[in-house]
Nucleic acid binder design. Structure first.
Lengths: 215, 215
DNA sequence: AACTTGTCCTGTCATGCCGTCAGCTTACCG
DNA sequence: CGGTAAGCTGACGGCATGACAGGACAAGTT
């Protein structure tokens, strides 16, 4: 499945080559978290990795190509987010707990992959299909099981049937993504970061079940 | 208040100069809506405006400087969003209407200023204070009056008092911004653009009042 | 050890954009 | 008509990009 790692000119990379390649990826990741995407230059990444720009171009077609690689790695990692929703109960007292754990887990994941997600989000917004697909993979890891949960609740008559489960789940996931991405905005509204979870969780619960959280 | 328009080297711009300057801004705006921000080059903007790169640098310190100008213009325009919330009623049957008009107006504004808002959002996410401030101006035009509305409802006992009005209003505005920014994501979840409003509006109503919308 | 083979890295070069400056052209005014 | 300030651009040094050829290196073979 995982095809061999290849250089741009088609050679198969060996042990040493893969190390160099990996170091370049690591340095790029580091770079992205400390300076604006627009200002990331191949020469800086190469210098940081103790190699030359020419070497960079052996392994990646350009900066964007390397960024995509990092993003795909993260997208795979996002699979673990599924478990925040799949098989969880929204009934009774466990509902609010499920909601809280979802908010918490999602925010943590976004915080962890802050820099790369920013670039992915921009690329997606600008209409780049590859970045869009990666972003959807991440969001879907939560949105899909969440839509299922809403459908189930609707079937049991425990949620408003006039709403589209996909729209509701999509909106809630968007909310989480947006909140995660712009935590600073909340700070400037006088909402402390630690107060984010207790305020978002009821909204998610409200959105999924359509009713106020029980005490 | 509106000080004279000046060139980078301090001269006062006359009629002809202001025209050139404006043409450059218009071309940059056009450029931003058709190609990724990362790829916008001074030389392309200048060429499109039928002038030379050197002229661009007479009026703007760099591309970012010009982008900021466009963004500030848009931020001023966002003042009109206030009226989507200020003085509106959330009680009885008018509540859902208020909610729908808010969603509609907000999405329309975002759609209209799509390209520049994308750049502003990225800049803000990357920690640039100037872009952050502009983004807050836009969001606050809705968030402030919305928080007031929540406070009023809480005072009248018509909303859950355990929630922070600023957090609730912030979360809802974030939701709207995120939905506006990534309308394509909803499409890929099988939610049509025209179905966005009827699905977001109940969520906003739910968030503000804490209860299900009346029939 | 000498040789061979295939991987890996870099020096160098042409190209193109950036950002600046001196200096030319244009417009306005007395 | 001449002076002055605004307006514009050609040209240049600097730097990132991306292609290439050739040298360095590791590992196996004789």
């Amino acid at each position: 499945m995982t095809g061999q790692v290849r250089t741009v000119d088609g050679r198969v990379a060996g042990r040493r080559g893969q190390e160099t390649r990996q170091k370049l990826l690591d340095c790029l990741r580091e770079m992205l978290s400390t300076s604006p995407y627009r200002d990331v230059k191949v020469i800086d990444v190469a210098r940081m990795a103790g190699t030359s720009p020419a070497t960079f171009y052996q392994y990646f077609p350009d900066v964007e190509g390397a960024v995509l690689e990092i993003a795909e790695e993260m997208a795979k990692d996002s699979d673990t987010l599924k478990e925040l929703v799949a098989g969880k109960s929204w009934a009774g007292k466990s509902g609010p707990t499920t909601s809280e754990e979802l908010v918490d887990g999602f925010l943590a994941f976004w915080r962890k992959n802050d820099a790369i997600l920013r670039v992915v989000t921009l690329g997606a917004a600008e209409g780049d299909k590859r970045f869009f697909k990666i972003r959807m993979t991440v969001l879907n890891s939560v949105a899909k099981p969440l839509a299922e949960a809403v459908k189930e609740l609707q079937a049991k008559g425990q949620a408003d049937k006039s709403l589209d489960p996909n729209a509701v789940s999509g909106a809630l996931v968007s909310l989480l993504a947006s909140a995660a991405e712009h935590q600073k905005a909340f700070t400037s509204w006088g909402v402390k970061v630690k107060d984010l979870k207790p305020n978002l969780a009821p909204l998610v619960y409200l959105g999924v079940t359509g009713k106020k959280a029980p005490k």
